[in-house]
Simulated assay, not measured.
Amino acid sequence: MFRSYLRLLLFTFGLLAGIQVPGLVKDYSQRVEAHLLESRQALDGFRQTAQRFFNGDLQALVRHYRSSDDPVFNSDANSIDSLLIRNQALEHEWQALQGSWLSRTWHVLVQPEPTLRDETLKGYSYQILLVPEAIGWGIGAGFVLAFVVESLLLLVGWVILGGRRKAVKESWR
């Protein structure tokens, strides 16, 4: 009886944890998109200047600023360069989130950008999404968790008992 309740409890915990995966992926994707739009907007003025004077080449604008003897221009070159690096990282992250649901989920769970991951986790609120994707993740996670833990407990019991089961005496009365 205890084993049945433990199995049910593990399945429920896995179900609730698995249901969180699509919500987390969605929140992370929205955060990446928001930062990307902000990054593009921050570069707009510099893009216009580069378009007007350097045929749209932002690196040429940065080189021009760096070649100046004015320390303000050198400082601006560093600022533009850091904006460009951040924009490229966000563009790369955005491209990684444009694949199938499996590749998006794998990316968010295994190789997200650390600062965006931390921001997402800090702002994440648990939610129960009733969409097929969340239900599938929930049932799958619940089954795997219940199966793995029960298998480990049975293995530990088998090792402790030396591979033998206690014989159950049957009573006819």
Rank of each mutant, 00 (worst) to 15 (best):
R31K: 15
P114M: 13
A96V: 04
I160P: 00
V144K: 05
V148T: 10
K26A: 13
K26Q: 09
V168M: 07
K122Q: 15
Q30K: 05
K26N: 13
E38G: 13
D44A: 11
Q127H: 14
D70E: 12
D81E: 15
R40F: 06
S75T: 15
V110W: 05
L129D: 15
R86V: 12
A167S: 04
G99E: 05
E113W: 08
F143Y: 14
V159S: 00
F147C: 06
D70T: 03
L121N: 11
Q30V: 09
Q111A: 12
E113N: 14
L37P: 00
D44G: 04
L109Y: 04
E113P: 04
A96F: 01
I85F: 08
G56M: 01
T115C: 00
Q59H: 07
D118M: 09
S82V: 15
D44L: 08
D69I: 00
Q88D: 12
D44H: 11
R31N: 11
T105E: 05
S29M: 01
R63N: 09
W101D: 09
V21H: 05
K26R: 15
E133N: 08
G14R: 01
G140R: 05
F46N: 06
E113K: 03
R7I: 08
V62G: 02
I135C: 09
E33A: 11
A146C: 09
V131G: 09
S39N: 07
D118I: 06
L16V: 07
E38M: 10
L61W: 01
A96R: 11
V131P: 07
W137H: 12
R173H: 04
P112R: 07
L9G: 11
F73H: 07
A89D: 07
R104Q: 15
V62H: 03
F73I: 03
V21T: 10
H92V: 02
A50S: 05
V149G: 01
G138T: 03
V148D: 01
V149E: 01
R66F: 01
S68R: 08
L61Y: 01
Q88A: 15
D118Y: 07
V32F: 01
T12L: 15
A146S: 14
F13P: 00
T115Y: 06
